[in-house]
Every structure is written in structure tokens, then in C-alpha cells.
Design a protein around this nucleic acid. Sequence first.
RNA 1: GCCCGGGUGGUGGAACGGCAGACACAGCGGACUUAAAAUCCGCUUCCCGCGAGGGAGUGCGGGUUCGAGUCCCGCCCCGGGCACCA
Length: 922
Amino acid sequence: MAAGAGLAARRCSPCHPKASWIVSITIYRFDHCIGRYIMAKYPFKDIEKKWQKRWEDEQTFRAVEDERFPKEKRRYVLDMFPYPSGAGLHVGHPEGYTATDIYCRYLRMNGYNVLHPMGFDALGLPAENYAIQTGTHPAVTTYANIDRFRTQIKSLGFSYDWSREVITCDPEYYKWTQWIFKRLFEKGLAYRKEAAVNWCPRCKTVLADEEVAGGLCWRCESVVEKRFIPQWFFKITAYAQRLLDDLEELDWPEGIKQMQRNWIGRSEGVEFEMKVAVPPSQASEGNLEVLSDQKPLAFRVFTTRIDTVFGMTFAVLAPEHPLVDRLLQHVPDDRRAAIEEYRSAAKRLSEQDRLATTHEKTGVFTGLCAINPVNGHEVPIWIADYVLYGYGTGAIMAVPAHDERDFEFATKFGIPIVQVIAPKDGSAVELPWVDKDGVMVASGEYTGMTVAEGQKALGEWMEALGIGERKVQYRLRDWLISRQRYWGCPIPIIHDADGNMEAVPDDQLPVLLPDVEHYEPTGDGTSPLAHIEEFVNCTDSEGRLARRETDTMGGFACSSWYFLRFCDPHNGRQPWSPESVRYWMPVDCYVGGAEHAVMHLLYARFWTKFLYDEGLVPVKEPFHRLENQGMVLALTPFRHPRENERLEVGQPGIQITFEEAQRLPQDQVFYRWEKMSKSKGNVVTPDEAVEKFGADALRVYELFVAPFDQAIQWTDEGLQGAARFLTRVFRIATEVAPWWRFDWEDGLLGELSAPARELRRKTHQTIRKATEDIERFAFNTYIAALMTFVNAFNDFLKMVGPEPTESEKAVACEALQTLILLLSPAAPHSADEIWESLGGGGFTYQMDWPRYDEQLCREDTLTIAVQVNGKLRDTVEVPADASREQIESVALASAKVQAHVGGKAIKKVVYVPGKLVNIVAP
RNA sequence: GCCCGGGUGGUGGAACGGCAGACACAGCGGACUUAAAAUCCGCUUCCCGCGAGGGAGUGCGGGUUCGAGUCCCGCCCCGGGCACCA
């Protein structure tokens, strides 16, 4: 392509005196329609490198805490930082980065001081698993990956302040992660308790959830078990209510807020105690036990429907409930084995499977009963996996008449069902009846009360008698932070000889990750760190021998505060200075994938609130505005299953490579849009895209092709279309260049010709549209508006021909300057290049964002849609200042309209100003 | 299963409750070319009709309204999240 183009290159400097630079490096061809040489392709490679170098040389994107900018003229715009995987950047990453870059460049053009940093989330499982496979230290691969990511990101011309880069595996960074851990520990918000891990009995290791496929280990396919070991937690539940309440003030997508509300899952109810009725034959044994550990056999249950308590016909304990062990001493021998077996089976099921309503209810009867405190009735105690130990008290009162799950269970096991809530009108209902709009029946002295009255009365009664209390329960659980892994931030805790825990003193931070010989799991469930004696052996504050904590922190800890470090990334004495966070925080606009809707965003909010309480940050919320980007999908080949093959539920076919797809008969192959990922072999890297079409084309394409928050279906053709658009912009610039003058405003004299009026209108309308669209992250319509503008500009150039009037030239200059500036955020290399070619100095992002004139946007005439009975029958042109009466009479006069109205009486006429007339004549 | 999104021409998408299909891609026709590519110009929701024109149409079924892609109710399908991937 390039060789042929070289031969075809022509010089046409006589007609483009000011654009000689373009002539020197651009490919020209003669266009017979307009009778001139035009540019066929723009030299993006040279252009992009040149501008990236200039931007870097001039340190133009460096953010400085300049007090001359008042708070409302500062903006902190942040991308969720990437995890640098070995596969390198793929085209999904730049979508969000382009959006923030456009927004930042736009803000700078509007006079804002902008902080726009980038860093890397570098601790985690993939690097460690790679180390296990290859023996390469995770730090080596991680830093190599980071270098690759950084180069790739830089090739796209984003306006990051790279001087603020942070990397979470850098001891200078994780020192402060440990420092925050300590603050949480000191406030009692970091604590240790037993919790379940996925345990593979064959590999003798703890597995991440994603390493468990269908209950089996991903490496050896053994059945994965739950194992209880002591682990570290952050007490996020202490902040549940505030995390819920403060969602109100956030400018986030409503769906994300709703997901967080559901995740926190606030519910109000009553928690009360139920005593176990020990059978007479075992009474003596039971009494002995009561004496021995001072704890009567009893358990607590939580319910949001205390009003249904008279309908309790059984009680259920989660299989993991600690009381089950004690109950086992009292159950008949023949049941003991069944219960033990049930418990070990439950261990193997995931929580999701247990809760699925498709999962048939299972359970075992203990042979024991509990006493319903409101009426003294004995109800059987069952053990069933639909009750989770992690939620509420891990035990429930079961009211099958008014709960779907209890109903299903009772029906299956033949347990009685007693209705205690009925509609107010006394009509019969089908059970289970879960409606709360009813009254209590068969409920002793409470009969006749509404649900709400009964809940209040029963709650008060239980509180008065000390049986139970009203309680707010959250579904939110404390944040499990422990990982029995190597490549994570060490937990800065020391266990002394007496089993007490103390924090590592601040002056000894960071607790450095030591080098290890092997990254393989140790086989006893501890981290590889546990076998490094130099690491583990230490002394406590009194100089006695002690053991260092060997669990590390999950990656979410590191990403819960990186936005604070960006404010002051090189501070060696503090995690950040108070002045820096006061200057920049909160993040005004945070952009990333919706997959982080709950966990990352909730954890970061929690840490920010805690740090606010400690007086360390001036804001209660980290991210004011949130925008989500969509995924990037790629067409992926599949084939239909063969005779001996069976597909899993929901599996569309057998995924194959593109080569296989070529080889196989076409009727066996089909394509689907799948998420781009290394494992699917459908990844397109930005390097390929930049090489073929340039960074600006990639940027424009990714934002044009779909709304920002929707998935993109990646196609090369679409990318080519974006490149074509940029070529057209260059071509227009080349055509207007001979007329160019910086003082074009002086040329706008007298009455404008019709094409000139039209172009000016379009110019100002486009400014308005582009401004509104960038503000609301509607980048696809922003780009579309620029395309429409370019098309209109083209039409104008054709209409005025090679000899336009002075004022037409001036209007063309205004349009070109506007086009360059409006394009600058999206395609900055091209914009700066064209601006320079016109003799302009500096960078376009340092220029002022264009302003539109409302008067100039206004159309001369309006097209009014005319409907008859809501159906479009005609459109009419009217002057922009026509009155309602005039418009209605023109509309009625239309022959097409008359044909449909006929002689019918007109009932009414609906008029929408400037838009539409609807004649209602039924 | 639960929670949250989404479903509009051949394709991606546009559309304050007011002309459905902006802007692109692909396709078709034309110009240029020895030719191809590139570029430029034009057409392009479907059905009926030579045409003028008419009818249908925003996943499916109802409803509200002068008027519904948009609001309400009930379904179907696809995607994301579900606490140790990040």
C-alpha cells in the first residue's frame, strides 16, 4: 500500500500554500468532482508519535496543587486501575481510558485544574499461579507486565500524569496499606475468627472460589470441602447503615446503587431464644451437661415475620450450627449417623446451590424439639441446608403457611402447616400466603391485629420478658481479608507466645514480602510464608520470641485506598498529606466496569468512611460520580456437538479456534459474540489496532460504536470507518487551508449566503450538542454529531466551489476551527496536527472550548408533523415565528390531511410547539 | 435461584411521551482506474403497487394516552454480579 502510494503522491503546493507540511508527507490524488488534489490517507503514525513526544516533553499533563484554582474549578477524574495480566492490554481497557481522557481534555479546555493519574493493581493470584508453574518470581512477571501495559497505554495518547503512578506491590505503597490495616486493628475493626475456606484434600491447599468448578478442584477435580480456619476480617458491618444511607448523595447509576442496597440487605425483625426440649429418657444426661458448661440447650432465631410466630410448626438449624454438635449427644443413635452424613454432604455444596429455589429442599430430623416461647408448643428441630450459618443466627423458626421455602420443606417432609395470617375480609387464600396486608388469626391474644401491629406488640412483649429483642439485621457480612497466599500484602501482626496479637510498630513498617524458594502451597493450608523461618520468627514488643502472621491481604485492600495515594504519591512520611487530599478529594468522576458494582466500590467506601472518622480524609465518600463502561465482545467460533459429546446446561456449543472454523464444513460452525478474553483466543490488542489505523481511530471507534455503558461488538470494519472519518477531517482542513486566517471574525461581514448561513447554524448547533453529550458521557452521539458536521461541511464546500466569497471563507474558517477544537478531546493527535498545520501554536487542549450562540442555532423554518388521529399524514414547512393558528390552518389545508379528515367533525387539535399538530376526528 | 442491566432495519446504534431508524458498518448502483484497492457521488426497514400511494413495524401479550421504542401490569430471551479473579 505504502509503496504504490509513494508513486501516486503529487505535489500541489500552489493551491495549498499554508499546508505545505501536509503535502510533504501525505498521499494525494486528483478529485475530478471538485477539480482539485485531495488527500487520500492521513499519516497517523508520524503524527501520533510526534505529538505524544511533545506532550511528554512539555510535561503538559502534570497536575499541580495550584491554589489559584478554587475548589469548584478542580476535577479529579479516575479510571479503575488495571491488573497487569500477562496477556497485555486488550481493546477493552482503552474504552474507559478514552472516555476519561475525553472528559479531562474537555475539562481543561473549560478552565479546570485536572488530576488524572494511572497506576497498577499488582498483587494477586494470577502472578502467583504463573510463578507456581514457571518458578519465576511474581515481582519479575508483574513488573514486566506493567512495563508492557504502560507502553501500550501511552501509545494511545492519554493525558495521564505519569509522575503520580502507583504500583500496589511496591513496598513504598503497601507500607501504607499495612498502616491502614493497623488503624483498623487498633479500632477493633480488624479481627480474627474461624471461617470456611475451599479446601482441596488432594492438593492440600486452599482454593479461590474461581478455582472451584462445579464443586471440584480445577487442577485435580477432587471434591472440594469446606474447612474452618482462623481468618482475618474487617468489620464492614459496623458501617452497614452509613453505607446504605450515604448512597443517597452519590451521583451513581441507579442500578449500581440498588445492587449495593440489596447487598447490604437491611431487614428489621426480632431475634429471640428457643429452648431445646430434652427428651425425658435423656433428661439426666442433659442436666449433667447444663451443670458442666453452664449453657442450657437453646438457640437463637431471627425472623422478619414475628407476627407469624404462632404458625411455627418446626425450627431449622444450619448444618454448620455449633449447637448441632451438642444436640448429637441427645439424639437417638439411629439418627446420629444420618445427621453426620447430612452435614458432610452440605459441606460440599456452594452457598448459591443451597439457596437456589430449583435445588430440592433437603434436611434431617434431629428427633428433638424446641419450645415456641409464645405458646409453649413443642416443634421438631430439623437440620437443613437452606438455612445458612452465615446469615442471621444460622437458625430459623419455620412458618410454612407464610414462607415459600418453609412451605416447600414442610410439604416434602409432611410437617403440619398452620395458617395464622388471613386477608382482612376473611376470604380464603391459597397457602403459602406471604402477603403482609393481612390480620393475625389463631394467634391467642394477638388475634385480630394487623401484621404491623402484631410485629410491634410481639416485639415489645419479647423484650419485656427478656426472651428476645427487636433487631436490625444486615445481609452484609464482614469482609474476609485473609488469603493463605504468597503474592499479597503481608498482614502486620505478631502473635506472641501466649497467643495474644499485637501490631507491628509503625517504624518497622513495611513488613516486607521475603523471597521464597517455592511458591507451591505448603500442604497444610498456610501461606508459603509460613515456611520461611526468618520471616515467621520474630520478637514481640517485650523482646520475647513470637510468630509473625503469615496470611496476606486480598487485593481489595490495596484497591480500597489507591485514589488517596494518587493525591500525594511520593510522600515517605505519611500515606498522604492532609493538604493534598483536601485539594483533590473526592474523586469527581470514577470510571470502570460494572463488575465492580458491589465489592470494590463498597470496600473503598468503607475505608474512606473509616479514614474520615479518624480525621485522615475530609470526605465521607470517595467517588462522587460513577460511570460504567461496557465490555468488549468479539465474534467467536463454535461448532455443534458431535454424537458422543454433550453440552452443559447453558453451553452454546464447543468453542473452537479460528483455524478450525476455517477447516470445518460451514454448517458445523457458528459464531457468537463472546467477552474478549485470552482463554477464548479472541483477543484483539490495541497494538494491532494502532498499527493498522492509528490511536485516534481506535479512540473514536470505541466510543462511537455503542453507548458508553453498553457492550461493544468489535469489528475491523467499524474501526476502518473511524479512520475514514478522520481522513475526511484532514481533507476538509486541506481544502480550507488556502482561505485560512486567524482573524476570520473580521471577515463575517454583511448578509451571509444561504450555504454560509446553513454552515454557521450547523457549527453552533454542533458545539451545543458536543458539549451536552460529553457532559453526560454520551460519547457515541458526540462523535456522531461531529460526523454529521463534517458531512455538512463537505456539502458546503461543494456548494461554494473553488471561488467562495470572503464571508463564506470566514464562515468556513469558523467551522474548521470549531471542528478542530470539538475533535480535540476525542482525537487529540489529529486536532493538534491540523491546528499546527494552519500555523496555530501550542496544544489544542490548552485553547478555550468553543461557545455557541443560541441565536445562530435557531432554524429559519420549522418542519411540522401533521397527524390525523395520531397517524402521520403529512409534514408542512412553516416560518420559525409562525403562530399556532397559522400552523393549524396550514396543516388543515393540506390535501393529504383533508383526504383523511374528510367531512368528519374535528373533536380537537393537539399542538406541540415547533413539532407537531394532531387532528383528532374520530 | 436472587439482584442489576439490555432486547429497535442485513449489522452497531439514534430518538425531552410527539415525523421510528440520526450517525456509521455491510450491501447494491455509478464516477475515477488498464485493473484492483483507496476515494468520491447516489440508493438502502419490511410488505403490496408501474406509479401516486397504502399497509405493517421497536422481543411477546395486555393497559394508560389525542399520541407509546419511551409510562404501567404480566411473560420470554440475552448479558453482568453473587462475597478467595481483579
